[in-house]
Amino acid sequence: MSQWMTLFNKEVLEMWRNFKWIWVPITFILLGVSEPLTSYYLPQIIKSVGGLPEGAIFEMPKPTAGAVLASGLSQYSTFGVLVIVLGTMGIIAGERKNGVAAMILVKPVSYFSYVTSKWAGSLLLVWISLFIGYISTWYYTGQLFDWVPIGEFFQSFALYGLWLTVILTVTVFFSAALLSPGLAGFISLALALIVSILSGALSHLLEWSPSQLTSYAGALLTGGKLPSDTMPASLTALLLIVLFLWFSVFLFKKKELAA
């Protein structure tokens, strides 16, 4: 356990060194907060850009606070996913390429600790960044529109966190399974995209798909009620996380022993 903690601390320290602890949360804040700001100032933005004929009346229904927060949150399932995948694709593949992995693994470090400590470090970063970004979005929405109940905030936060964890684990898996960080990132992104589109299109068949967690979080914020399919979808997400993590340790061990 103490060995695992050492590796984990190394991971956290490294993320300080390359400023991940600063830029990822800031990116998440800017991504989320831009949503309530632009929807609030949209009439002024349109006015300043111009192009409307004199005397044109442009009435826009004011969106509800829940809808604004939901669209702020949805930024994390697009740009947030992009940031996470591009930021973690090199996590194992990169270290193996430049030889750091070999340097660590000649010591009596188990493959399990090596992979899971890396995964846990990124997990911490993702959840903290998501929390900071999302709570600022919540605060800005509250200031400009209405306050969304904090209970709904935490529920939707947990659902999004779960989905982003699935993405993260898949990226770690491909990073361990493939030698190239670029390929790992590409495949993870493509997979996330395909799963999202498929489960969006076939939502009546794939209610349990983990990517549906994002639409359930949106439904909670706009409708105020959590769809009943949230439970199976969360369970699938948890199962996938465990499976992919296990497979990444397994594959990494196999590859590393073969190399």
Partner: peptide
């Protein structure tokens, strides 16, 4: 700009 730099400008391998 800065986000782009961190995401793709940095060499992480």
């Amino acid at each position: 700009g800065p986000i782009l730099y961190f995401v793709i400008g940095r060499r992480n391998d």
